[in-house]
Design a protein around this nucleic acid. Structure first.
Lengths: 243, 243
DNA sequence: TTGTAGACAACTCTAATACAAGTGCGTTCG
DNA sequence: CGAACGCACTTGTATTAGAGTTGTCTACAA
């Protein structure tokens, strides 16, 4: 029974990778070490490894070594792209219509978050391929938004217009029924499910500088959250009861 | 040893910082001292510290030293407690009722994720203060669930019963309307908004070992997501279009 | 065609060293 | 007494060298 050496080796290594033998350090032994272990030349070991690379199981960097592919730490961050990028990537034409633009006294729930009485409020409708896709309302302290015009907001994303660096955010996600207003704008029946999202964005000092509310039609959107670290529960992370 | 020195050191230091070893004086040993302790060059120790700085755990000032960073970054992780803990803390009486418990052939969408034809399916209703609060369905490969009984599942959370360590998860969150079945169990009107969550939990090797679906009544629940790092957009992170 | 052997280039990581720049503190000098 | 200085120690940055790795090539044997 004549069989091909490098395929044998590939099979053996595939087994070890899948079994997680190497997953601990994520690094494979060097080609030289494997060559010694299998009593095969380095070139042969290499061909076996290349088979596994084609399968997407492992990858290599010159001068560094072979490692099991898809290191679980970097990927999730990359996968969570912005919705704009994601839409651009999939060829969806995105567009936004400014519905309201006003400097005004802040409602109470805005004051509590932003801590300013006077704010700029911008309400706009985002479209994807001509269909309404999100209603976004942004509140921003008046002094930060002072130099902004309706045209600015229409052309550039909000975060680019503020000259302060944004640091982090907290967002809440909830299911709700579409109100009359939502329904008309999103072109869905009144009472149909929508995703309501509220986001508080802070600057480097931790001060809240943006409050935004987003309404998405439930039938077209969902959230994806990646939790690379250990989560000692099967329950969805971040859920809380509201009253 | 085929592993990267500075990553080892980073891991060791991360442990100490999180354990609070340095929190007393808030100051870390100098790079030179650490270099001596780990028998590594100062450059290597430095790279490890830079990893921790990128994570926001520590920071440094030239001519002064390294210190544990103000902990606003660690907090969000703590704030995202499990719903069970949260409920217990606020004095809500939680309780679960097993509705279904069966070993069976996996439906297609389960096979695609778990990669096994035979599964254990458990459906249960979670109650909070006597009111229905979540419908949870869990699928788990039959071989992993073999030693489980209906009674086990009733008494302990699922993740405690599996003797394998869970690593990470991906969850999707969507808004939907309550089906007849949902409505009856959750005691809400048919068609009222619900949060639908699907979660894929993996073990240390990255293999998917649990698939769970959760349905929450929209009026009582919401998700909170903390994003400590920079997010270059005001748009909610993780949103994607579904078709 | 497959496998072995060897050589060399390019790359990565680490060690070692040196120097610039900032901080804290004690000493000295006016 | 107060300001200036020096000194020890720190981080920030750059350069060199060496060992170990993958990437690629040629030559040769089975």
């Amino acid at each position: 029974m004549r069989s091909i050496r490098y395929q044998q080796i590939a099979e053996e290594l595939r087994g070890r990778v899948l079994a997680g033998d190497f997953a601990a350090g994520r690094m494979l032994p060097s080609e030289s070490e494997l060559s010694a272990e299998f009593s095969a030349s380095r070139v042969t070991v290499r061909r076996a490894l290349e088979v596994l690379r084609d399968e997407g199981l492992v990858d290599a960097r010159q001068g560094f070594g072979w490692f099991v592919a898809g290191d679980p730490l970097r990927q999730p961050l990359g996968r969570l792209a912005t919705i704009e990028e994601q839409m651009a990537e999939s060829g969806v034409v995105s567009e936004r219509r400014i519905l309201e633009f006003a400097f005004e006294r802040a409602p109470k729930f805005v004051t509590r978050v932003l801590n300013t009485p006077q704010v700029l409020r911008v309400k706009r409708l985002n479209m994807a391929d001509g269909e309404p896709f999100a209603i976004v309302t942004v509140w921003c302290p008046a002094d930060l938004g002072q130099h902004l015009s309706r045209r600015d907001v229409e052309q550039s994303p909000f975060y680019e217009l503020l000259d302060i660096p944004l640091q982090g955010a907290t967002q809440t996600i909830a299911a709700d029924a579409a109100t009359d207003d939502d329904a008309k704008l999103l072109q869905v029946p009144v009472g149909s499910p929508v995703l309501r999202c509220e986001r508080v964005t802070s600057d480097a000092t931790g001060r809240a500088v943006l409050l935004s509310r987003h309404v998405f039609p439930g039938h077209r959107t969902e959230f994806v959250v990646d939790l690379p670290q250990a989560a000692p529960s099967i329950a969805p992370t971040g859920l809380r009861l509201v009253d």
